[in-house]
Amino acid sequence: MDTELRDLFAFLAVVRAGGFREGARGSGMSASRLSESVRRLEAHLGVRLLHRTTRHVAPTEAGQRLAERLSPALGEVQSALDVVNHYRDRPAGTLRLNVPATVARLVLPAIVTPFLKAYPDIRLEVIVEDSFVDVLAAGCDAGIRYDERLEKDMIAVPIGPRMQRMATAAAPAYLEARGRPRHPRDLLQHACLRGQFASGAIPTWEFERKGEILRVDPDGPLLVRLGASVDLAVAAALDGLGIIHLFEAWLQPHLDSGALVPLLKPWWQAFSGPYLYYPGRKHLPAPLRAFVDFVRAAANGHA
């Protein structure tokens, strides 16, 4: 086969990233080199693989079919090459993780620095994405999600705190002006700061007490995209605009300082912490194997 392997990798990087500049960030190649590789591959195959405009790059039907077949095949090639890593003194390479914003904010800060200090030859790329994704199709080695959103047929390893809670809170100024809710249903009469998934769905606020689960769908003056714009909702809550319902750990500094007052605390719902998940391969890439071992050691108090 005359087609160069690096051209295939370049094409797949562009498709996964949705553009040449975006693909360059994750591939270690410049955008111009990626473009040259794709043009060379198209000339060799005699078919257009990408639709290109000034604002958008998308695979043609032929390009999409090729990408679907290349993804697992080139994954196996990378795994085969990674075997050499086992003969090094220290594992090296790039580890790509796909995580939601809550994990990037609340879980990874305690893990990333000690991990990278322990493995200085590993480069970690963190892609923050709150929607449900196929981590392999997205070009990632592993993902972190909560159990209700884990992909099937994956190995899951607990990571971070094993129990988390949702907290409800408001600024003292808001409570002075509007009063304090005594029951979750009282929130229907209050200004609430809501979040929205990328799909457009607005999750209800869920509460639990003595086995009773209660869901409410309050209204309010502000709606933000979950993950990307949550800090805007927190700032609005601090300014007294309304009541916020968010991860307890996210609000904890403001609860500790008194800038936010906890509300309905007996109803705060607890849930299990997130999991690192990855495909069950016989040979894991060395950076991923190092990360899995590090997370497991941290859970056992040995990291």
Results as ranks from 00 to 15, higher is better:
Tyr119Ser: 00
Ile122Met: 06
Leu238Ser: 07
Phe20Leu: 14
Leu188Ile: 00
Leu81Asp: 10
Arg180Asn: 00
Ser131Tyr: 05
Arg145Lys: 08
Ala31Gly: 03
Pro218Cys: 06
Phe294Lys: 09
Glu36Gln: 15
Arg90Cys: 11
Ile244Ala: 03
Trp250Ala: 15
Ala173Gly: 13
His254Gln: 13
Thr102Asp: 04
Leu241His: 10
Ala299Val: 10
Asn98His: 08
Val84Ala: 15
Leu45Asn: 09
Ile155Cys: 09
Gly179Lys: 01
Pro184Phe: 15
Ile122Asn: 00
Ala10Arg: 12
Tyr278Leu: 09
Pro120Phe: 09
Ala298Lys: 12
Gly46Cys: 09
Met163Gln: 15
Gly160Cys: 08
Glu68Asn: 10
Thr94Trp: 09
Asp141Gln: 14
Phe271Pro: 08
Gly301Gln: 03
Ala24Gln: 03
Leu45His: 00
Ser32Glu: 13
Ala236Lys: 02
Leu124Phe: 05
Gly160Asn: 03
Val216Phe: 09
Leu45Asp: 04
Val77Ser: 00
Ala73Thr: 06
Leu175Val: 12
Gly46Ala: 11
Leu136Gln: 14
Phe291Trp: 11
Leu34Phe: 11
Glu68Lys: 08
Phe11Asp: 10
Ile202Trp: 00
Leu276Val: 01
Leu95Ala: 02
Pro181Gly: 08
Val292Arg: 12
Pro262Asp: 14
His183Leu: 06
Met166Thr: 11
Ala110Asp: 00
Val83Ser: 15
Asp2Tyr: 08
Ala299Ser: 14
Gly46Leu: 09
Phe291Gln: 03
Tyr277Pro: 01
Ala31Met: 10
Ala43Asn: 14
Phe247Ala: 15
Ala167Val: 02
Leu276Asp: 06
Leu8Val: 05
Gly143Lys: 05
Asp219Val: 08
Gly18Thr: 04
Leu8Arg: 11
Val99Met: 05
Ala101Trp: 02
Gly63Arg: 01
Ala167Cys: 06
Ser257Trp: 07
Val224Lys: 07
Asp130Gln: 09
Asp130Ala: 04
Arg21Ser: 13
Ile159Cys: 12
Leu255Asn: 10
Val224Gly: 01
Ala101Met: 01
Pro218Val: 02
Glu22Val: 07
Asp89His: 11
Gly211Pro: 05
Arg33Cys: 09
